[in-house]
Amino acid sequence: MGNKIEVLDLNAGFGSTHVLKNISINIPKNRVTAIIGPSGCGKSTFVRCLNRIHELVPSAWVNGRVLLDGKNIYDSDVDPVDIRRRVGMVFQKPNPFPAMSIYDNIAYGPKIHGMKAKLDEIVEDSLRKAALWDEVKHRLKDSPLSLSGGQQQRLCIARALAVEPEVILFDEPCSALDPVATAKIEDLILELKENYTIVIVTHNMQQAARIADFTAFFLMGELIEYGETAQIFENPRDKRTEDYITGRFG
């Protein structure tokens, strides 16, 4: 099992604030890797560096290397737009495009990348993969705002799948959802790892324990411990990891 992403000495921040400090981590292919840690520890900034979304914020800076299939995505000959197609992202809150129908939300990505043939097929396939097809197949022309929060989030997952990414980043995808909707998203993530490499940021440790193969613990912008999920939760090597997972702080 190879590594899909290798991060080497990544530093990032905003202006004079240094958020990520010397992060080096390997993310294995077709596995779920969870990033846990208290609020403000840099977990979101970390995943946003993996698809070059971080640098869009004014004053944001990055240095270090992020190798996607061995190629540094921060090399000057790399087009960030292409990286963002290959590394998809699902955000904290569902963010469907309200001015487009359910169908057009999914079809938008393929259209801008010139995949104009077989749009109907792509839309159906993406919605099926996101376990949403049966719920929306009769109302594809409706507004996405007619869907519930959990359905909207699965719509956003389907939208990300439609551009055929290789990696999907989930930035606390369930923080705005109820437990039933959360369970559906978790099942979905477990199915998706067959075909995609998945990184999920979560502040819900049970969630990490349920779905992740590997877990990384971040604290104050540093990677404290990284290993198989079972090892991190049952047998943490670092005192700070143990304190965090047993709820002594954070």
Binding site: I53, N95, P96, F97
Partner: peptide
């Protein structure tokens, strides 16, 4: 919301495409 813009950018839309098809319609 910046979440709307990032939603489009994360799909690999260029800045121009994001403005035309997501920001202005919103």
């Amino acid at each position: 919301p910046s979440l709307q813009k990032e939603g489009a950018l994360a799909l690999g839309a260029t800045r121009f495409e994001t403005i035309i098809s997501v920001v202005l319609p919103y």
